[in-house]
Design a binder for these strands. Sequence first.
DNA 1: CTTGACCTTGACGCAGCGTCAAGGTTTATC
DNA 2: GATAAACCTTGACGCTGCGTCAAGGTCAAG
Lengths: 253, 253
Amino acid sequence: MEYTVNKLAQLSGVSGRTLRYYDQIGLLKPARINSSGYRIYGQKEVDLLQQILFYRELEISLEEIMNIIQDPAFNQTDALKDHYRKLMQKRAHLDNLMATVEKTISSKEGGITMQDKEKFAAFKEKMIDENEQKYGDEVREKYGDDTVNASNAKLRGMSEEAFQAMNNLGEEFFSLLEQAYATGDPASDLAQKVAAKHKEWLMYSWPSYSKEAHAGLAEMYVADERFTAYYDKQVKGGTEFLRDAILNYLGMK
Amino acid sequence: MEYTVNKLAQLSGVSGRTLRYYDQIGLLKPARINSSGYRIYGQKEVDLLQQILFYRELEISLEEIMNIIQDPAFNQTDALKDHYRKLMQKRAHLDNLMATVEKTISSKEGGITMQDKEKFAAFKEKMIDENEQKYGDEVREKYGDDTVNASNAKLRGMSEEAFQAMNNLGEEFFSLLEQAYATGDPASDLAQKVAAKHKEWLMYSWPSYSKEAHAGLAEMYVADERFTAYYDKQVKGGTEFLRDAILNYLGMK
DNA sequence: CTTGACCTTGACGCAGCGTCAAGGTTTATC
DNA sequence: GATAAACCTTGACGCTGCGTCAAGGTCAAG
C-alpha cells in the first residue's frame, strides 16, 4: 500500500504541510520520489509516523523525537522520565497561576482596589516562584537526593495495578467522606474510617509515613484554597471536616 | 524619576529588547522621546509595566493584555475568568499527558521490548483510524453504527492490564503462527490452535463475535497490503496461511 | 580628543506549522 | 483529444515574544 502526501495526511490526521515539513527537517522522509517528484510513502513510513505522533502528543519536541526514533542507542526511558519531570514542573507552575488568578478574581469581586491588590499579587507570585526554585534544592540538601529521588521513583515506578488500586481507594475515600460528613461528627466511627482510608491512600505516594506529616497535610488542606476547592467540590465543606477527622484519628485534638 | 530603556529594564527585570518591542506593538509607549531619539519613561510607565508584567506572568497574551489595560470598558474580571478556564483545561491536558507518560515508562520498565510495545500501540491506533477511514463506511453499513462505535470505544478504553494481556496474547499468537506455518498445513492441529488464539485475541477488541465477521476479517487481511505487510513481517507468507487456518477452524472451507 | 558605555533602527532566528502563490501532473469528463 | 478539476511541487511570508548580532549615533569620563 502506497500513499501520496495527502493520502497519508488523511490517514493519519495530520496536514500535508506537516508531512512536507517533517520531510524537510529530516524527521520523516518518504520511501521514494516518483518520476514527477511526488512523495510516495510506504508501510514503514506509516508505522514511523504513528510513533512520531505518539511522542508528539506527549508534547515532546520534534528534535527530541528525532533522537528517540533515529538513534537506537538513545535511552528512551530516560528521555521519557526527563520529560515527565518537565511536565510536573509545568503543572506546578500552572497550579500557581491558577491560584493567583483565583485570588485576583475574588479580590476584584470583593471590591479591593485593583492597583493595590495586583501589586500585592505580583509580589506574591514572584515569591512563590522563587521559593519553588529554592525549595527543590533545599529539600534535596536537607533530606538528601536519595529521599527525593526515592519519592519520585516510587511515584513513577508505580505499576498500573498499584495505580488502579490507588484510584479505587480514592473513590472509596470520597464516598466514605460523604457519608461521614452527613453524621456531622469528626469523631464518629465513620469519620475515623475516613481518616484511616486517607492514610492508606497517602501511603501510595509517600515514601514514608509519620503522624506529624499527616497532621501537617490536613492543616495545609484547609489553608490552601486549591485543596479546599478540590475537596469541597466533592463534598461541600468537607475539607475542614476531613482535617478534624484526621486530627482526631491521630489523637491530636 | 525618569528612566532610559536599560534603566527601566534593570529596574523591572525585563530586557531592553522587550521594552522596545512593547513600544513597537504599542503596548507600552515611553513618556517622551528626547532630542537624541532616546526613549524616556516616567513613573506612570513604571506602574503600567508592572501591571503588564503581572498579566504576562499569568500567561495572558500581549494582545489580550492590551485589551485589558487600554480599554477601561473592558471587563477585566470576565477576562480573568475566561483565562482561568483556559488554565484549567491546560492542566487537565497535562494530567492526561503525565498519565500516558507514566504508563509508557512503567510498561517499558516492565521489560516489554520497546519495539513490540510501540508497534502494538501504533497498531492499535491504526486499527481505529485506518479502519474508520477505509472501512468505516462499509462496516458501518454492514454492522451498524452502534457496533463500530462500541468497538472503537472498547479499544480506546481498554485498561493497561487488559492491553498488557492482549499484548501477551499477541506474542503467543505470533509464536504459534510461526510454528504452525512450519508444518505447512492450515488444517493441522497447530494451525487450529493458531486460529483459536486469533479469535481469543480478537475478542479483546471486538464488542461481539461472529464466525462470519471473523472469516471476513481473515479475507481482508489478505486483501489489504497493510495487513499482509504486518503479518508477513513476523512470519513470511503468514497472512494467507492464517486466513486458511481461520477458514478451516470456522469450518468454512 | 579618544575611549567606552549606552542609545538608535533594522533584520534574522527560534518552533511548528497555516496559508497563499505560481506552476507542473494526473484523472475524469465531454 | 481538449479541457477542466483535482492533486502534486517548491518558495516564501506570517504567527509569538522576544534574543541576538550589526551598523551607526550620543554622551560622560579620562
